[in-house]
Nucleic acid binder design. Structure first.
Lengths: 218, 218
DNA sequence: TAGATTGTTAATCGATTAACAATC
DNA sequence: TAGATTGTTAATCGATTAACAATC
């Protein structure tokens, strides 16, 4: 890491995309790539790529470009993907179950080690080889097991109580699927996934397009 | 709508959040709100709220502020939420099934009218009162039914073929859950949901926090 | 060496914030 | 009217793009 200067969220959010493209290049046995060529493939500017990467270090070589494997592993490291993460699921409804059953996360080092729900409908149910536990057991579980990330897949409202419990444990990250805004103490980091917002953004764009089309047609 | 000037994505992505907060205010029977008060609640600046809204019109009143119900309905309209949308699901795995079973979307006017999958494991299965159809039936279905949005919940790769089919129909929007970047013709609009990217962003922040903590501890 | 391409500084562009006249 | 708060213009800040010297 270059220095302690704050990296903007814009940059951070582009890192997974670089990582994905570099992974694809690796799969195609492409060993070197210039910022210009990568920029073309990604539909961004070469300047942006070089600026983004130089937040973290100098990974290229003048006159040559970047070594794909090297850069891939650097970004992998920057993103913290060379570690593994233990996760618990809070809210084992349809959505939570889908997350547990999705193999892609485990492949990247994220593994669910326990599932919790408050509803007797799902407590005791087997999902992904685990039995769903009562949320009343969560504090005990967290005190006896190391957990890095809590995945909250509850529909809205009653999320606050769990934040209190998590804040008292060694959980560091919360992946929040409950549409509401979570305020968390400073020892927790939240990443929000707002599916409803995303869908509304899509309908905005669709409605807008229709208007433009109408104007263009006229 | 004020004029045809391009609205930045930054603004568009804040609209659902305004909508959510205004909905909460309505539920609490709060009838008026100033940009300052709303800004405090949302943790942003009053200037930003006023600038954002003025992209679309003048909805407030000097010395008074904004009428909550009025502004709520204006944003609802801007987002296109006063219309209803017919959706089809392509990829009825765990994840797709969870989306179909989630009641929140229907509540906002988004309804699945058909489900498709290529795997004989799920074709014919009943989900949310619908029977999953073979994807080979998709072109016919689209030519005989009006569909606004296609929700793609396939794991990666084989998405391209469906884009071709959708582009030939009257589908306008694609809500894309397949981690890969979709290139679509101009008559389609894509909204990408990249869950894996979101999780990687979270682990970046967690790893970063640990480093800071270490530095602070020292 | 000559050509290519980086790392980095400088210029531009756009988005956010501040300020304030207009006005309810 | 006096106070409050908008709509909007101007100032600031930050992010993106362009340019180029350094160097492989």
């Amino acid at each position: 890491m270059k220095s302690d200067k704050k990296i903007s969220t814009a940059v951070i959010q582009r890192l997974p995309r670089y990582y994905r493209y570099l992974g694809d290049l690796l799969d195609k046995d492409i060993t070197r790539i210039s910022s210009k060529e990568l920029a073309t493939r990604m539909g961004i500017t070469a300047s942006q790529i070089r600026q983004d990467l130089n937040n973290f270090g100098s990974f290229g070589q003048q006159g040559y470009g970047y070594n794909v494997a090297l850069l891939y592993h650097e970004i992998r490291h920057i993103l913290g993907l060379d570690k593994s993460y233990a996760m618990v699921l809070i809210g084992a409804g349809n959505f939570g179950q889908a997350l547990v059953n999705y193999r892609g996360f485990a492949k990247r080092g994220y593994s669910f080690i326990a599932l919790f729900d408050s509803s007797s409908d799902v407590i005791g149910k087997e999902i992904g080889g685990m039995s769903v536990m009562d949320t009343t057991l969560l504090p005990d579980f967290l005190s006896q097991n190391h957990v890095d990330i809590a995945v909250i897949a509850l529909p809205g409202q009653a999320v606050g109580q769990f934040i209190d419990i998590l804040a008292k444990s060694d959980v560091k990250g919360v992946w929040n699927f409950s549409g509401s805004d979570l305020t968390v103490p400073s020892n927790l980091t939240v990443e929000n996934v707002r599916l409803a917002d995303s869908l509304m953004t899509l309908s905005y764009k669709i409605s807008k397009d229709e208007i433009i089309q109408r104007v263009t047609d006229a």
